[in-house]
Design a protein around this nucleic acid. Structure first.
Lengths: 146, 146
DNA sequence: TTAGGTGCAAACTTTTTGCCTCCGA
DNA sequence: TCGGAGGCAAAAAGTTTGCACCTAA
């Protein structure tokens, strides 16, 4: 992969330092996809047991600022981090929590529309849409009664 | 509003009890829209100072189970609760955190499409889409370099 | 009357901060 | 060398749990 050297460069361009921890955290996010800070930390600690969860949090913030990673809240609880390269859209059922992945091309029309009308650049590469899966669609509508 | 009596009824239908706290929490969610549990608690405590935040958490869970309220994670930190009636879509800039509200009709096409192709009932009444606002669109694309 | 609901305190989980040391450039 | 970065411990933020008392039905 060409990106191997780009973390160092990206950091240096902004006067920041390259460290083993930063590379390890980025690698872990790339490898795991949709991992919580805690899972990322555990993964990093297999190679470098001394790395502290504090560093993972700080590094994730940093990488997010560099737009190398992104986080979303798929459900309750901890956020889930992924790289931009991991492109897809999530359909999350708020009844059963089931998550379906669909290709981002499904949102092409919407992306166009939002850009034209609101100047908003939708990032369809990593998105969670909430609603109800096929199984829970009707029950919910009924219970709702609105 | 016709809904004034429906909380009591909804609860009784399921063998649960109506309490002042439950009404107060629901009213607070309706009034505030996009409030965190803590803000909701403060609001409730103006009228009923003895109400504890524990009760607010428990009641929000309950009301969510009854599908009377919904929560989303708009950014980091605490979740934000709203009623179903409060219909709109959020465009969240992941650069500056700015939140723009747009009408749910903008998603009609997408909703149709997801239902046809995946059997997924998108809930366009309360949704957060992440991307970049007009101001931060270009800078991000540049820095991103992908 | 009595089980469901509440308040209070404490525990727990997740994230942030302070501070001192270490190491990348 | 020297200031940014990391490790550790403690604090803060957010949420849940246990339990005794209260109250809606």
């Amino acid at each position: 992969m060409v990106v191997d050297t780009s973390l160092r460069r990206t950091l240096h361009e902004r006067g920041m330092r390259m460290t083993p921890q930063r590379q390890l955290v980025l690698d872990a996010v790339r490898e795991l996809q949709h991992a919580t800070p805690e899972r990322i930390c555990e993964h990093v600690q297999r190679l470098a047991p001394a790395v502290n969860i504090t560093t993972v949090y700080r590094t994730l913030d940093l990488l997010e600022g560099l737009e190398l990673v992104r986080h979303t809240h798929l459900g309750h609880g901890a956020p889930s981090y992924s790289t931009h390269a991991h492109e897809h859209v999530h359909l999350v059922c708020h009844r059963c929590g089931e998550v379906t992945e669909i290709p981002p091309e499904e949102l092409t029309d919407l992306t166009e529309r939002l850009r034209e009308r609101f100047g908003f650049m939708l990032d369809p590469s990593h998105l969670a849409l909430s609603g109800r899966c096929a199984e829970h669609g009707d029950a919910a509508a009924e219970a709702n009664g609105l």
